[in-house]
Write a protein that binds this DNA or RNA. Sequence first.
DNA 1: GGATGTGAAGTCGTTCACAGCT
DNA 2: AGCTGTGAACGACTTCACATCC
Lengths: 213, 213
Amino acid sequence: MKYQKIPEATIRRLSRYSRCLEEMEESGEEVVSSAQLASRCMVNAAQVRKDLAYFGEFGIRGVGYHVKNLLNDIKRILGSNKEWRMAVIGVGNLGSALLSYKDFLKQNYKIVASFDIDPPKVIGRVSEKLGKPVEIFHVNRLKEIAKERKIEIGLITTPPSEAQSVADLLVEAGVRGILNFAPTQIVVPEGFVVKDVFFTTILDNLAYLLSNN
Amino acid sequence: MKYQKIPEATIRRLSRYSRCLEEMEESGEEVVSSAQLASRCMVNAAQVRKDLAYFGEFGIRGVGYHVKNLLNDIKRILGSNKEWRMAVIGVGNLGSALLSYKDFLKQNYKIVASFDIDPPKVIGRVSEKLGKPVEIFHVNRLKEIAKERKIEIGLITTPPSEAQSVADLLVEAGVRGILNFAPTQIVVPEGFVVKDVFFTTILDNLAYLLSNN
DNA sequence: GGATGTGAAGTCGTTCACAGCT
DNA sequence: AGCTGTGAACGACTTCACATCC
């Protein structure tokens, strides 16, 4: 297979296949065809095969894919077979929600520290619910703690006005991945990655569809 | 201008233009060119013009766009000039976070009710922070309350196993828009709209980019 | 002169259709 | 016989380039 640039959408679908395969594995299914996986994930069967073809040959012609193997391969491709260490910057409503959002913990994404500028919040710990609480540090200790705790992904949940300067701190600390919840565009150097999660953009999208159908 | 199907990406960018124009309006800028708006939003200038062209002619040749007018037009197009009434279904970690997530309130998206099946949660109210608290009802009152409070968008924050049945309830109650946070695919009839917000998909995406760069 | 609006070109992603294996 | 893997066709979105208008 010749090398090609891999579409962003392919990566998102791999994540979806991964979820479906996990369910299939749990229910004891051993082999799956591209058609079965496709209908489960609501995509085209050729799309499934094409997506996988970017990364190699995983199936057996005439048979299908071995569920367990395919799941492992996809996780390896995505990099979701390792544990990722994350920090939350900005312990407001959304930030503290993420800290106690256990669904991350079930996965391979762990929040191992959090930061804020507001002293009242900085003294304590949060995440009352089960599991060990996540410490809150003053943001001026970000670089130090990020190195110490090997943080690889930063979740920016500050007000938009602070987002870029927090991003700069993360870059300086060598945190290469950023998940940006602050509705403002962030710029980072080559080699760093930002993904945005803007609730209002998604809601605007819904509003548009509801207004025009 | 002939009618064309409007790309999803165009709608997302309109939301972004909207945010930038709001900032410009606040800082007193009156006129903006497609090139200026484009660089602010980190897109191509032709893209800005093309996006707007789907909906009409909003600019003045040789001059640019009137900030205030363009902002109004975009909001009208998106349907974000009206107030949208929403409900949260599933008052767990994420659900209660959204209830107290004030950033929605600044916007035109209001959470006016919430629902759960777990009695302990159902008795009370949440959202301690400023603003009036949002009532929590038992999910079996969803249809009744949805009509009464004219709910138009439902945010599903239940475990994945419950997501489809909650969606069915929303459909039955005539709630046409769904924002689905439960990482599972949901099916709704024609005329209803679902947008997914899957944190693990986004994190998988980040993980992939970090692993392969 | 200068910026918009838009057909045409270019790029990217999806679907088809079938050759190639098992 | 059946399902994968993939070149080719198709369709969708983006960018270019320029005619159009203020």
